[in-house]
Write a protein that binds this DNA or RNA. Sequence first.
DNA 1: CTACGATATGCGCATCTTCGAATGTATAGG
DNA 2: CCTATACATTCGAAGATGCGCATATCGTAG
Lengths: 119, 119
Amino acid sequence: MDRHELYRLQADLCQTLADPTRLEILDLLNDGPLPVKAIVDATGQRQTKISQHLAVLRQRGIVRADRVGVEMHYAIADPRILDACHITREMLLDRLRRQGELADRFAAVLDGGAIRRVS
Amino acid sequence: MDRHELYRLQADLCQTLADPTRLEILDLLNDGPLPVKAIVDATGQRQTKISQHLAVLRQRGIVRADRVGVEMHYAIADPRILDACHITREMLLDRLRRQGELADRFAAVLDGGAIRRVS
DNA sequence: CTACGATATGCGCATCTTCGAATGTATAGG
DNA sequence: CCTATACATTCGAAGATGCGCATATCGTAG
């Protein structure tokens, strides 16, 4: 297994996470296994779409599917994926906060009339 | 900022990480800032390609670029991204280890002739 | 067997991504 | 000014992805 093969696999894993619907599904499964119907209802998306995304997550081993009677229950396969998602989410929230502060400071400067004075 | 907008941003961030070359670049920058030339040499990829990927990383705020004389030095903007990468890498390595064990056990069974006896 | 509810799959289309080739820009040296 | 070095940008082709629509499968109840 050479280094580049690992980068390829890691890129595949990231690619699997690179979809808003799939991230939302993982977030829902964070609280425990759910049948497809529950995910469809919770997201408000079409069943076909959810099923396709679940297939992607299943094929890459991110989630696990078990039959429970007539339903399929999906669950997170490796909880560490949620840690990774948490980190990226925190990074984004921090960035948004910083942008908010910047916007506030900029707005304050505008209110002070500093920009108009310059122009 | 509603929940779905955050999922979209997070998906964008994951998408940015979803490329072997970009992951390799981040890995290289893990040890400190580097000029483009060093990255090109270290990866053995074409300069155009590296520059394109650096542009992607720069636009998404993953890396920061500073002029140093005639060179551009690139650096990791938020070290937490490396934590996230580390988690996914560990997950993959674990999975590969498990697959290796499975393969070993399977090979042992094959050597024992259990499969042939079944067929 | 039939019908139904739950879930999965195949297909076609629009969109996005990646790469290489060529070209553009900028800075330092002569 | 001219050149070379270091890096960035644009463009087109090839491949990948996401979605909706229609349809298939699977388990269970009649």
